[in-house]
Design a protein around this nucleic acid. Sequence first.
DNA 1: TAAGCGACAACAGGGTGCTA
DNA 2: TAGCACCCTGTTGTCGCTTA
Length: 238
Amino acid sequence: MDSVRFGLSIRALRRRLRWTQDTLAHRARVSQSLIARVELGGADRVTPAVLRRICDAHGARLTIRVDWHGEALDRLLDADHASLVERVVRELQANGWRCLVEVTFAIGRERGSIDVLALHEATGTLLVVEVKSVIPDIQATLAALDRKVRLGPAIARDRGWRSERVATILVAAEGRTNRRRVQAVGATFATHLPARSAEARTFVEQPSGTIHGLWFLPISTQTTGRHRVGRSHAPSPA
DNA sequence: TAAGCGACAACAGGGTGCTA
DNA sequence: TAGCACCCTGTTGTCGCTTA
């Protein structure tokens, strides 16, 4: 983000409305000194939520987008996800599951894709796997998973798969941050995905009945907390 | 033995109050 | 309106305990 341009923009909008910094601060529910800081190019020291409030006060819209080396960022973001999907597919196939990856569907008005759709033919078990390298929005993640579970049998039928029951596993990258996010909404997870990693693994190895669970798996390229030595904060500028 | 989780420390950065 | 100093909060890494 160009903080200087952002600050000049806010100032221009504020003056157009003939507001003082105090007026804007009141409307955006921040202090006057913060408005001054932002207008002078200090937006990079303010949270996006506050910047959004300042924009909202003007009726403006804040858009944040990260660009890096053309499409390289998309490939980087995809790498962790792809690594987890690969890990899941290996685990499933090793235990006799047939797997389809990135299964797109269009049923009525419902469109989307399932990260991994697996069938255990011996038991007639269909497994819908949602893979998340990071869990940014728990509610949205669970809502998307519910929808895919509902549509799973129909999607499987389209591919000639016959199933008697549907199971779901949300696979998340192992890490303290993801675990804490899940823990923070423990009651929600207990309702939607009560099974945990050990049960999920047992189910994958020997599917019986059905399961709705959460499985933490390490990303091979990721350094997990316990293996790191020392802190990783960026050094302060000199 | 691995998974899960609570507690704690360290740190960076956000936001405010005060004042020139 | 601008700038400084301070306090508070959130995040992350680590340790150690419990449980299956």
